[in-house]
Amino acid sequence: MTTTTATPSPAATTSQSVRQQQWREFWFYFSASKTAVAGLVFLIGVILVALFADFISPHLPAEQYREFAEIPPAWMEGGQMRFFLGTDYAGRDMLSRIIHGARLSLLAGCIVVLLSASIGIFLGLVAGFKGGWVETIIMRVMDTIMAVPGLLMALVLVALLGPGLLNAMVAIAITYTPSFVRLARASTINEMNRDYVTASRVAGAGPLRLMFISILPNCMAPLIVQGTLSFSTAILDTAALGFLGMGAQAPLPEWGTLIAENRDLMLSAPWTVTFPGIAILLAVLAINLMGDGLRDALDPKLKRS
């Protein structure tokens, strides 16, 4: 068939240009989806905001302007430009709190994904590679974790470990581990039957080399996609735990906590819960859109000729 990938011209020789070409190909498929690019741009914006929160936020997040409590956003009657998105019950600026909250939420997402992915990928690789009773034990434990609804599981774990942002992240990471294990195991089993693994074996490669140098890089594409999508749910779950009072504790401006502490004002000062909610929504949406684009670009089965 003529739809195979074309060989490049002999000019493209150095490893740098090879990498460049791979990036170009990746970008070609990724940019085919406009929504994915939009998601990426928004996410980069959020990351920049989180990085430079100290410089761009108009007020300190914890500073209370007691005389200006429950001021509506600037465009509403009684609003002030000083407090663009209004203030909460204690007179703290909502915009500043949301900007600083981006830091906590992104950090929570990162840590959860890093923890669950590294543990999950390692266990999945071992399970797929070793087989036998090792596989059975790992997979049955994972099945047990999956049998309990994720948020409930996290709640129980936080109740055991004690509330707090760090414990919430650990608890969420544990509930996410099984999906990485399953994915890594499935890809490993798939790759194990390929000839290049046999070739490495004939060359005398040991199990560690086979697992981490031969097999793992070939399993990464679906894991990266899974990582991105878990990132968004991690933000969502951290917010949910915060809302339930089990995650980040006040006065930390975590998005879920923001909604929780202003819960009583939902009717009298709706902006105090609306804007943190919108922040969560947009961040999660952007990451999901980007994740879809990544899957299209990285999954060879979906690639068009």
Binding site: T198, S200, A205, R209
Partner: peptide
């Protein structure tokens, strides 16, 4: 003493390794 060449040249080379790394692997190990 014994080495092997496989049927399918598309499956027998690790797609994530450069040619140099593929060929060096037996030397690194042995």
């Amino acid at each position: 003493t014994v080495q092997m060449v496989f049927q399918d040249p598309f499956g027998s080379l690790n797609p994530r390794q450069k040619i140099g790394d593929i060929l060096q692997e037996p030397l690194i190990i042995n």
